[in-house]
C-alpha cells in the first residue's frame, strides 16, 4: 500500500488511531452522566486556546490544552455547585470561548480564516511531527485514566451520591474526568475538528449501546467503532479527497444506524428464546403468595 509510505499519511493514521481510542473512552463517562454535549462545550472553549497559540506564535496544541483544561475545570465547578443559572453560565463560557478564538485569530499575523477552518473542521493531513508527539503524550494520559480508573469513574458517573459515601475522592475524580475530556478535545481537534469532536465522543458509545448489555462491552465496542471509523475515514479522505472530519463522523453515524438495525431483530430473537424456554403454565395446586 503506497499510502503507508507517505510520512504525512503515517502521521495522519497514527493520529486517527489515537483519536479513535481516546474520544469514545472518555465519551462513555460523559454519556453515562448525561453530559454528552460537554465535549462540544470544551471544543468551543478550545478555539480561544488555538487563537492564543497563533497570537503568541507557539504550538496551538499545547496552548489549546491549557485553555481547555481551564475551561473544563470551570464547567465542572459550575456543574457540581450546580445552581439554577448553571446553564446560562455554561452558555457564556461556550460562546465566549468561540468568539474569543475568532477574535484572537484575526489579531494574529499568522492566523487566517483558512487556519481557522483547519481547526474547526480538522485537517488530518497537515498534522506535523511536533503535533504527533503532543498527541501521543496526551493520548497516553487519556488511556491510562479512562482504563486504569474505570471502576471508580463508573461509580461516580453512575451514582455520585453513593460514590461519595463509599469514601472515594469524588471531587478529584470529577475534575479528572473534566481534564481528561479537555485533553481528548485537543488530541482530536486536528483529526475531526473542534466542531465535530463531540460527535466522536458520543456516537460510537451510542452505537455500541444498541447491542451491549454491560458497561465493559459498551466500552470495548465503542473504542472498536471509534478506531474503525477514524482509520477508514482517514483512508477514504485520502483517496476521494474529502475532508477527514466530516467523513469520519458520517461513517460513525452509518455504524450507528447499522447497529440499530441489527439490534431490534437481535433483541426479539433473545426474547423469543427465553419465551420458548419458560412458557406460562397454570398450576392450580401451586402455592399462591402475594
Amino acid at each position: 500500500m503506497e499510502i503507508l509510505d507517505l510520512p504525512f499519511m503515517q502521521r495522519a493514521l497514527l493520529a486517527a488511531f489515537l483519536v479513535g481510542i481516546t474520544a469514545p473512552a472518555i465519551g462513555i463517562y460523559l454519556v453515562q452522566r448525561r453530559q454528552a454535549l460537554m465535549g462540544d462545550g470544551i471544543g468551543h472553549v478550545a478555539l480561544t486556546g488555538v487563537g492564543l497559540g497563533f497570537l503568541l506564535n507557539t504550538s496551538p496544541v499545547w496552548v489549546a490544552t491549557a485553555v481547555c483544561v481551564l475551561g473544563a475545570v470551570v464547567m465542572e465547578l459550575i456543574r457540581s455547585y450546580g445552581k439554577a443559572r448553571g446553564d446560562i453560565a455554561l452558555a457564556m463560557l461556550f460562546y465566549g470561548g468561540m468568539a474569543g478564538g475568532v477574535m484572537l485569530m484575526s489579531l494574529s499575523s499568522t492566523g487566517s480564516s483558512a487556519n481557522l477552518t483547519t481547526y474547526l473542521f480538522g485537517s488530518i493531513t497537515t498534522v506535523s511531527q511536533q503535533d504527533i508527539v503532543a498527541i501521543c503524550i496526551l493520548a497516553a494520559f487519556v488511556v491510562l485514566t479512562t482504563i486504569g480508573l474505570r471502576r471508580q469513574l463508573f461509580a461516580i458517573c453512575q451514582d455520585e451520591e453513593f460514590a461519595r459515601v463509599t469514601g472515594l475522592p469524588v471531587r478529584l475524580l470529577n475534575l479528572l474526568v473534566a481534564v481528561t475530556a479537555a485533553v481528548t478535545v485537543t488530541v482530536a481537534m486536528r483529526v475531526v475538528g473542534l466542531l465535530l469532536v463531540s460527535a466522536l465522543m458520543v456516537i460510537p458509545v451510542a452505537a455500541s449501546q444498541q447491542i451491549a448489555r454491560s458497561f465493559a462491552t459498551t466500552f470495548a465496542m465503542a473504542v472498536a467503532v471509534g478506531v474503525l471509523v477514524t482509520l477508514s475515514g482517514t483512508v477514504t479522505s485520502y483517496y476521494v479527497d474529502v475532508p477527514s472530519g466530516a467523513t469520519i463522523v458520517l461513517m460513525a453515524i452509518g455504524v450507528f444506524i447499522a447497529l440499530t438495525a441489527v439490534a431490534t431483530p437481535l433483541a426479539r430473537r433473545r426474547a423469543d428464546r427465553t419465551a420458548e424456554a419458560e412458557r406460562c403454565t397454570l398450576r392450580p395446586e401451586a402455592d399462591v403468595q402475594v
Binding site: I28, F154, F162, S214, F215
Partner: peptide, 21 residues
C-alpha cells in the same frame, strides 16, 4: 444511567469502599 450496566457492575461499585483506588 446513560450507558448499559449489568447488575454485577452496579453492585461491584459498593466494593469500592474497600478497594478505593
Amino acid at each position: 444511567s446513560g450507558v448499559p450496566a449489568t447488575v454485577r457492575e452496579v453492585v461491584a461499585a459498593g466494593r469500592l469502599a474497600r478497594t478505593k483506588l
